[in-house]
Design a protein around this nucleic acid. Structure first.
Lengths: 133, 133
DNA sequence: CAGGTGTCACATGTGATATGGTACACGTAT
DNA sequence: ATACGTGTACCATATCACATGTGACACCTG
């Protein structure tokens, strides 16, 4: 069974949602390096999406280095590549967007920091307990 | 002159980009409550976009309570409404997205916090120096 | 060989988006 | 009253991203 579900959210492409869910599963270690990733057609069936869309998801994750494709065999979760330098720069857009939105709803910097903390712990904290919800 | 520029970014709707730029200008106090906001046609001319698109921007910002429409007169920057309760919940999606992306590029929680801090200061820090770049 | 895997190439329909144009109700200034 | 600027509302059109649908190919394993 695939370790993530999908709620039809408006505005966000299905492929993006699935890819994001897969990322969460990987970073929270519900999927460990070396684990087999659902095949294109299996993923399509499980997520109720088209095989072509599922293929796009896998292709994107593979391009980002999160999955390793074994031609003719399947796809497995890759070990994380060494992070490149100047990585803080890549977050600028997202950080700015989050900051502005936080300001708009009247949140304080402390509240935002706390929300980040909580979320981070929620992801990184589910390390070796595989069956946990 | 409008206090924000626009760089044609792929994938993101123009109206969204303009609205976001306007939000930044408002929250960083480059536009203060009571200040006149560019008119639909002026904004369209300045941003090199269609009047219809500019109107969509203003309508969205007004719907979010950031602008106050004076019928027949124009649009001014509104005083921020009292923040509603349970506001941390509204950030969950964005926070989660940012956290996952930070993990992907190998950033630590501390680095992420620091990036947030810096960005927040950059926005809230430009309070009363109007002419600054 | 058959069956599974990832990959690619079309075509099709749908929805969002941006543009272009026109019109209206409102308020201000002349 | 007139002219002008304001936000707002339609309609039409073109474009693009997206998901779907279908088919085909190269690869590996049994």
């Amino acid at each position: 069974m695939v370790p993530f579900r999908l709620v039809p959210l408006s505005g966000v492409p299905i492929a993006e949602q699935v890819a994001f869910a897969a990322k969460k599963a990987i970073f929270s270690r519900k999927l460990r390096p070396g684990d087999a990733f659902p095949s294109v057609r299996a993923l399509a069936r499980a997520m109720k999406i088209h095989a072509n869309t599922a293929q796009k998801v896998i292709a994107q994750l593979a391009a980002e280095g999160l999955l390793e494709v074994l031609p003719g065999i399947g796809t497995v979760v890759a070990r994380q590549a060494a992070p490149r330098s100047g990585r803080a720069r890549l977050l600028a857009r997202e950080v700015e967007q989050l900051a502005v939105q936080a300001m708009q709803i009247g949140a304080s910097l402390e509240e935002l920091q706390s929300a980040i903390n909580e979320c981070w712990r929620g992801l990184a904290g589910a390390r070796s307990d595989r069956g946990a919800v």
